Amino acid sequence: MRFFKVFSIVLLALSVSACSSKFKTYKGPEVTQVIVFKDARRMLLMHNKQVLKDYRIGLGFRPTDDKKIRGDGRTPEGNYRIDRRNPNSNFYLSIGISYPNANDIAEAKALGQSPGGDIFIHGRPWKDRKGGRDWTAGCIAVTNREMRDIYSMVGNGTPIQINP
């Protein structure tokens, strides 16, 4: 009887820990593109022309216009790729955007500045849970629950188009 109680407790603990994992498995259609509409604060995960998911997003703390230089608080606009993943992000989970591209570097250089970098799609840390809609330094923010889905669905190399 005692063995059964111990076994039940261990099984229950494993079940609860499995449910709380931030890593999900996705077996649906491939995400072939991510499309961001900054003015509408929306991000779409696409499979060809089909919308798989539609998310409300937060942007940089200066959401209008295109990112030009490091520290301007703007989210970049243009065509990039998802190029890295961070499972231990300070912002829950994050996937990297290949900003800056050659055009971004040239624009910043013409201004005598650095274009910056480290632009991600990420979750929201506990300290920023009530940070308002546009609070990042230029990244694209979603809820942690949404980020679990995005992290599992969007692979490295996926194109991302960020529109004004």
Rank of each mutant, 00 (worst) to 15 (best):
S89T: 01
H47A: 14
S152E: 07
Y99W: 01
Y26N: 11
I69E: 07
A106P: 03
Y99H: 04
D54S: 15
A106F: 01
I119L: 10
P76H: 02
L45R: 08
K130A: 13
I150A: 10
N103W: 05
G157W: 00
T158F: 03
R124I: 14
G78E: 01
D104C: 09
Y151A: 13
V6S: 14
V51P: 06
M1K: 08
N90T: 08
T158N: 07
G112Y: 00
A102C: 07
N79P: 02
R85C: 10
E146A: 15
T64R: 11
I160H: 02
G73E: 00
Y26D: 08
T32A: 10
M153S: 04
R145N: 15
A137I: 11
A110Q: 12
N101S: 13
L12G: 15
F61D: 03
M43D: 03
F120L: 15
R124Q: 15
A40H: 01
S17Q: 10
S98E: 00
Y26T: 05
M147G: 04
G157T: 00
D83Y: 04
M1A: 09
I162E: 01
Y151Q: 08
I9Y: 12
R70Q: 14
N90M: 11
R2W: 09
G123Q: 05
N90W: 03
R84W: 01
R42I: 14
T158W: 02
L111I: 02
V10H: 05
K49Y: 11
Q113A: 15
G157E: 01
D72P: 02
Y92K: 14
M147A: 07
R124L: 13
D134N: 08
A110Y: 01
N48K: 14
T158V: 12
G131P: 00
R41E: 06
I57W: 00
S21L: 12
A102T: 05
G112F: 02
D54R: 10
P100V: 03
M1C: 06
L111Y: 02
